[in-house]
């Protein structure tokens, strides 16, 4: 009996996620982007298991700035380190931190926004004023200051600093949606049924805004990858022994490297561009899908 009821559920009411995925597959460009992302992610995470990070980042003075060859597919940098290996590990690190920052800032921003929108009134007023203050801060500079001041510096602390200044956008978006959603009768009905505010927020209201959340988080992922590589480029991201895509690009701040040794920075530049573009493609396609679904619903 259990089995056939489950079947009814599945054929009759696809979840918002599966609707979004179906729309995504119809969109050629987005599908290609998604496949590209999955391949890249699988490739770098898989391959980095076999690569020895310590060995790759060890300085080898006999192989400084070597152009691409059989031994080093993409040559070496000023420390004689294999660029290809750094590219693989760097992509992995950039992706990982992008995802981590997106999740941390997303979860905090969603909670903040949904609380603000759901309770409204004075709570909302106070919370929104705080966001207004955060929005006008020159956040890039402040992140740099915090990064340079943190003594115990790790992936987690780096992500937390970045997330601390990138949760406002999603919080605002979720807040305005929650503000609309709580006025709908189903949320009001839950109140009269004795459901607690916590359950109304997380079990009734949130499921109705999942597609917005998925779309926003995807687009945020793209900008966080960009932000991380930008910080690493300026020298305020990972230390050199933990390469990211931005680290490879930062070598191009040396005019000699930029002018004569394209193999060090160009692959990383292209890879960042492709990654950000693909993530955006997927995000935009999801957004279109979500909109269409709302029109139909």
């Amino acid at each position: 009996m259990e089995a056939d009821t489950v079947e009814i559920v599945e054929q009759k009411s696809p979840s918002s996620l599966s609707i979004l995925l179906r729309e995504l597959i119809r969109d050629k460009l987005a599908l290609i982007s998604l496949i590209f992302l999955i391949l890249i992610a699988g490739f770098v995470f898989g391959l980095s298991l076999f690569l020895d990070q310590a060995e790759i980042v060890t300085v080898d003075l006999f192989a400084i700035n070597a152009p691409p060859s059989d031994q080093f597919i993409l040559g070496t940098d000023y420390g004689g380190r294999d660029v290809f290996g750094q590219l693989i590990i760097g992509t992995r690190n950039s992706l990982a931190i992008g995802i981590l920052v997106t999740l941390i800032s997303g979860i905090f921003g969603i909670a903040y926004g949904v609380v603000s929108g759901y309770f409204g009134g004075h709570v909302d007023n106070a919370l929104m004023r705080i966001i207004d203050f955060f929005m006008v801060l020159p956040f890039l500079l402040i992140i740099i200051v915090f990064v340079s001041m943190t003594s115990n510096y790790s992936i987690v602390s780096f992500s937390l600093i970045m997330a601390a200044f990138s949760w406002m956008g999603i919080a605002r978006l979720i807040r305005s949606k929650a503000l609309q959603e709580k006025e709908l009768d189903y949320a009001q009905a839950s109140k009269t049924l004795g459901t607690s505010n916590f359950n109304i927020i997380f079990k009734q209201v949130l499921p109705n805004i999942t597609s917005l959340i998925i779309v926003t988080m995807t687009l945020n992922l793209a900008s966080n990858i960009g932000l991380e590589s930008g910080l690493s480029f300026l020298g305020f991201g990972f230390p050199e022994d933990t390469p990211s895509l931005g680290t490879l690009l930062s070598y191009a701040r040396n005019p000699q490297t930029l002018e004569f040794r394209w193999w060090i920075w160009a692959p990383a530049a292209i890879l960042i561009l492709l990654l950000m573009l693909s993530v955006r493609n997927v995000g935009e396609a999801l957004r279109r899908a979500a909109d269409a679904r709302q029109r139909r619903g």
């Binding site: 690009l249 394209w262 920075w265 530049a269 960042i272 955006r280």
Partner: peptide
């Protein structure tokens, strides 16, 4: 494309 391009990469390419 411009939306997805980080400014420092674009500036590097312009300089190059």
């Amino acid at each position: 494309l411009g939306f997805a391009t980080p400014i420092f990469i674009f500036a590097l390419v312009m300089l190059w």
